[in-house]
């Protein structure tokens, strides 16, 4: 028991990432406000980005920048790859967000609301 708690405390960043992910997931599926859905989508993405970045982090590691002089032996660098990947991921997330927001603007023009339930109601009335 104690060991589990200890390992959780040690790996608190995994824990936080998963909590964020679940918050995002839950909000995205249950909230009817479209803007909130988009925010939730971002929370979800961010949680994964966090997880990714923490994977690459090495305790006490240095930024992976080559010095002019050869680095002293025994010094760890953090893994640069996840950070680089996450940059791409962030760009992708931003473009999806932008597209989603533009859709919401259009939806608001047509329906006069950004609440998914109300939209469903309006469509139900029409049929």
């Amino acid at each position: 028991m104690m060991e589990t708690i200890e390992s959780l405390l040690h790996n608190y960043y995994y824990f936080i990432a998963v909590v964020l992910f679940v918050i995002g997931f839950h909000t995205m599926l249950t909230h009817s406000n479209l803007i909130k859905k988009v925010i939730a989508m971002n929370i979800m993405d961010t949680s994964v980005f966090l997880l990714f970045v923490t994977i690459g982090y090495v305790q006490g590691g240095r930024p992976p920048i080559m010095d002019a002089v050869t680095p002293p032996a025994g010094v760890d660098y953090i893994n640069p790859l996840p950070s680089a990947l996450i940059l791409t991921g962030i760009i992708v997330a931003i473009s999806v967000t932008a597209y989603a927001l533009s859709l919401i603007v259009k939806i608001y023009k047509f329906y006069g609301t950004i609440d998914a339930d109300e939209i469903a109601e309006i469509r139900g009335r029409e049929e």
């Binding site: 992910f21 995002g24 997931f25 995205m28 599926l29 479209l34 859905k37 988009v38 989508m41 979800m44 993405d45 994964v48 997880l51 990714f52 991921g89 999806v96 597209y99 989603a100 859709l103 919401i104 259009k106 939806i107 047509f110 329906y111 939209i119 469509r123």
Partner: peptide, 24 residues
């Protein structure tokens, strides 16, 4: 038109959910 926009948004959100799962 209104149907397309709504359908497309629904698709986008669920697709984003799928992507989130994939990335995790």
């Amino acid at each position: 038109d209104r149907e397309c926009l709504e359908a497309s948004f629904k698709y986008l959100i669920l697709s984003a959910m799928g992507t989130g799962c994939y990335l995790l």
